[in-house]
Nucleic acid binder design. Structure first.
Length: 668
DNA sequence: CGGTCTATAATTTTT
DNA sequence: TTATAGACCG
């Protein structure tokens, strides 16, 4: 049953306002997730049919969590009928049914960013003259930005820039390949609903209530989609916090939340400001920083958790000393409070900062858990594996074919590949088809021809095996790996045996994932590939339940909380990052600091250095200008010397003392 | 063709 | 410092 009596008045209002547009401004730690799940349950008790409710999130993780929490509150059968998914998954669902109207086939494949880059490189080579060089990554960003702003695709003859020409070609090519990229999922869905009223009508009536989580992260297209789906009945409830908008560089439009009323007039606006996470010292400090941002919805977090210890700001001589200090402070606290390592997080702006800290933690044999960095799915061997599978599924997929055509090296070099691409373009055929064309084979040397023929036979054979109705796909995959000698090659090319072992294990994990998928689905290779592309949840589950200190970037830390937080490297140039000044996104950097600060429940320590090793040499550093903005009442400046020599810092000793007192008074 | 060497650049990363 | 992309030679 829905336990409404647990909610504070604002939360209650958010839950019970079920008609018309609602904007819930949910500050950090204000029980947002509870409000969303309760609201869904409440809708059900009001008699709304579960299949009329749509809840959209950004990540699969968030969607899964929401689903689980709701499942624990309501009838199982009802919970199953709710639509809880990411924007992208929703788009796939819509497109799989109706993309035909846009001239694509319903079995389109989804390109991830790697595939995208591969295609762009191919096009740049073709379009641009030798003297002109265009950075493929820059082109990719340009294309993504253009799509998210709903630019019209400019025909190449009228394109003012090379980038625009590449954009046009890219889009053409994608359609030929019957492929869509991540952005297209949104672009095409919005286009579809825009141009086909009958489709729009169908999806509009499908959902009577639309909820969106992390609304501050939506981009223009996502907002447009929400408007299309909810524009008529206007039962739309968006939840977010403009102060935690940190993905502007990815196209998130903070204006969506700031100017919500313009698109959904007269909404009910509910501010959740009571924080259940942190002490008032932490909240006061965080409030004083974020208040400086010009464009935001004013709000202030408060809590009933007491003042707590002051936020400590420490200056260290250099980054190495900084790590030593942070790690030893952390260790002291852990012992004093009998805390688990899981209670601690060290948060930084850039991944590179984690290195020195890791060294320190390793030296003291403190378990830790580094989040992010390179995603599992960005690993070379994982991508190769998926590319092989894609080729089995669809050999006409040039991008994936080119990825593995000479991996491991099998005697098909760049000159041959170049020639094959050219031929395939002239003949209007896929590269794989070209490789089998007599005309093409006559152009290459005997040796190369043999290599190509062997490659074609290899793919053909396994493709046939994979297409068998009852094929054991994981077995086909293992055999393919063996036949290509991929694993042997992996071992050979790795510098250290550990690396080889690690990579080998990654490949095995993919084979296992495929077996697991086949155990629960009948969608075959296509289904596995689509799911894998859209749910690249990192393989960190094992590490998750092990005890350990969390090392994490500010971005990745959003949404998490820790008892004790160390925010390191808070220096001008790092936070705010130098690049942000060029881009004029200082506000977003301030929000990053705000997000970092509000992760802490009990204690927050901010450190900065006088000198830092940057790219191999020492460079002087000054404290972040944001630090001056923190209200002095909540701060304690601790000198490095004092901290380094004291057996326990003042703050720690005080909290220890408080704890003792609590124990003695018998209510601890 | 395939390995090695040198130049270059360097946030953040939900799908 | 380090990763990676392109140039260069065997």
């Amino acid at each position: 049953m829905v336990r409404l009596f647990d909610l504070n008045p604002q939360q209650l209002e958010a839950v019970k306002t079920t008609r018309g547009p609602v904007l819930i401004l949910a500050g950090a730690g204000t029980g947002k997730t509870r409000v969303i799940t309760m609201r869904v349950s409440y809708l059900l008790t009001e008699g709304v049919s579960p299949d009329k409710i749509l809840a959209v999130t950004f990540t699969n993780k968030a969607a899964n969590e929401m689903r689980e929490r709701i499942a624990g509150m309501v009838d199982r059968a009802q919970a199953k009928k709710l639509t809880i998914c990411t924007f992208h998954a929703l788009c796939v669902r819509i497109l799989r049914q109706n993309i035909g109207a846009l001239g694509y086939k319903t079995n389109f494949t989804i390109y991830d960013e790697g595939d995208q880059l591969g295609l762009i490189k191919k096009i740049i080579n073709r379009v641009s003259a030798r003297d002109e060089k265009l950075d493929p990554n820059a082109a990719k960003n340009f294309i993504s930005k253009a799509k998210n702003q709903r630019w019209k695709i400019v025909p190449p003859d009228r394109a003012e820039t090379l980038a625009a020409a590449v954009f046009h070609r890219y889009q053409e090519e994608l359609k030929n390949l019957n492929a869509v990229d991540f952005d297209d999922l949104l672009v095409l869905t919005v286009k579809l609903l825009d141009e086909h009223p009958e489709v729009l009508a169908r999806w509009r009536s499908r959902y009577e209530h639309v909820m969106v989580d992390e609304f501050q992260d939506t981009n223009r297209l996502q907002f447009e989609l929400v408007r299309q789906l909810a524009g008529e009945h206007r039962n739309v409830c968006v939840v977010g916090d403009d102060d935690q908008s940190i993905y502007g560089w990815r196209g998130a439009e903070i204006a969506n939340i700031l100017e919500f009323e313009e698109h959904f007039p007269r909404p009910r606006i509910v501010k959740l400001e009571q924080n259940y996470r942190s002490t008032n010292a932490i909240l006061g400090a965080a409030n004083s920083v974020i208040r400086r941002n010009p464009r935001r919805r004013p709000k202030g977090l408060w809590s009933e958790n007491g003042d707590g210890e002051k936020v400590r700001i420490v200056e260290a001589p250099d980054d190495r000393e900084e790590s030593t200090l942070v790690v030893s402070e952390l260790q002291k606290r852990q012992q004093l409070e009998q805390a688990g390592w899981k209670d601690f997080a060290i948060i930084f702006r850039t991944n590179a900062q984690s290195r020195v800290i890791e060294e320190q933690l390793r030296r003291l044999q403190i378990p830790y858990h580094l989040i992010g960095g390179r995603s599992f799915f960005d690993r070379r061997e994982v991508k190769d594996f998926l590319a092989y599978l894609s080729c089995l599924h669809n050999p006409a997929d040039d991008v994936n074919l080119l990825r593995i055509i000479n991996t491991p090296a099998r005697g098909i070099g760049s000159a041959t590949i170049e020639l094959a691409i050219q031929e395939s373009r002239q003949a209007g055929k896929s590269v794989f088809e070209t490789l089998q064309a007599r005309a093409f084979l006559e152009l290459v040397s005997n040796k190369t021809r043999t290599a190509i023929e062997a490659f074609v036979r290899l793919l053909d054979g396994h493709e046939t095996a994979a297409q068998q109705p009852l094929a054991d796909l994981s077995q086909v995959a293992s055999r393919l790996l063996a036949d290509t000698g991929y694993v042997d090659d992996l071992r050979r090319t790795c510098k250290t045996p550990e690396e080889a072992l690690d990579r080998e294990e990654n490949v095995r994990a993919m084979v296992r994932a495929l077996a697991e998928y086949q155990g629960r689905s009948t969608e075959g290779l296509a289904g596995f590939l689509a799911e894998t592309v859209l749910d690249q949840e990192r393989e960190e589950k094992k590490a998750d339940d092990r005890d350990g200190v969390t090392l994490i970037t500010l971005h990745a830390a959003k949404g998490l909380e820790f008892r004790h937080v160390f925010l390191v490297g808070v220096e001008e140039g790092i936070l705010p990052h130098d690049r942000s000044k060029l881009e004029g996104s200082l506000d977003e950097e301030r929000r990053l600091l705000y997000v970092g600060m509000t992760r802490a429940r009990q204690s927050l320590t901010i450190t900065h250095c006088s000198t830092r090793m940057r790219y191999g040499n020492a460079s002087p550093c000054t404290p972040s200008s944001f630090l001056k903005e923190i209200d002095g009442r909540f701060v304690e400046h601790v000198t490095f010397h004092k901290l380094a020599n004291a057996p326990a810092s003042e703050g720690t000793a005080r909290s220890h003392f408080a704890r003792m007192k609590q124990l003695l008074s018998g209510d601890g």
